[in-house]
């Protein structure tokens, strides 16, 4: 078994072992979406109009919430130091972590999106587009989040500062994510979103690995 596959399995087992985490994220995602009607009123046409934005904001916040477990536990118990000694380059290890992070935090959100779609009075067409845009855009959110988590991993109160760093980087994801659902140029926005995800996923393992190895020197 190659080192990369072993790393994937290790990460997957570790994240599923504390099974409550996944459920918490999904609950958080639904709750953020569900409190918006209390703030803006239960007007169905208004809700349907802003639903794509709400779903994206909820997904963005939920992805932020899951970032703490990406590198911090391994940093605290010293596993990160050991992993840096591995034959596998650190960027590959980070890539494995990123893939698993996406699987255990973004995929459950995708599965929970129908609930929000019903609550927010989405029609079938925009629901389908929302699913596609979330599937295409969450890798970019996970990648930018991984960079933010890696930069702050050696700071004791890093969980507080990471969202401040990640949010500006995530603005294009939100713009093209929501744009691919609602805008008249949704085709172009979908392509931009996919390009952004590809670029972020390609860049993030190297940037995050560099940040981690610099922080631990």
């Amino acid at each position: 078994m190659s080192g990369f596959a072993a790393m994937l399995r290790r990460e997957l087992r570790l994240s599923l072992r504390g099974g409550g985490d996944v459920l918490t994220l999904v609950l958080f995602f639904i709750i953020v979406g569900a409190i918006v009607p209390f703030a803006v009123g239960p007007d169905r046409t208004l809700l349907a109009a802003i639903a794509p934005g709400i779903v994206w904001i909820a997904a963005f916040l939920a992805m932020l919430l899951g970032l703490e477990r990406l590198f911090r536990p391994d940093h605290e118990d010293g596993a990160l130091v050991l992993l840096r000694q591995a034959e596998l380059p650190l960027s590959a290890i980070v890539a494995a972590k990123l893939i698993v992070h996406w699987l255990v935090s973004a995929v459950p959100l995708l599965l929970a999106t129908p609930v929000l779609a019903v609550l927010l009075a989405m029609d079938l067409d925009s629901f389908g587009r929302t699913m596609i845009s979330l599937a295409l855009g969450t890798p970019a959110l996970a990648a930018f989040g991984a960079i933010g988590a890696a930069v702050t991993v050696s700071i004791r109160r890093g969980g507080l500062i990471a969202p401040i760093l990640i949010a500006p980087l995530s603005i294009p994801v939100l713009i093209f994510g929501v744009g691919s659902i609602t805008s008249p140029q949704s085709g172009a926005a979908t392509l931009f979103l996919a390009a952004l995800s590809l670029m972020a996923v390609a860049l993030a393992p190297f940037a995050a690995a560099l940040a981690i190895s610099s922080a631990e020197d």
Binding site: I147, V151, S154, L165, P168, L169, L203, A207, L210, A211, S214, A215, D217
Partner: peptide, 10 residues
């Protein structure tokens, strides 16, 4: 070094 990484990502 860490902040340099983030600056370049930015």
């Amino acid at each position: 070094r860490v902040i340099a990484v983030f600056t370049l990502v930015g």
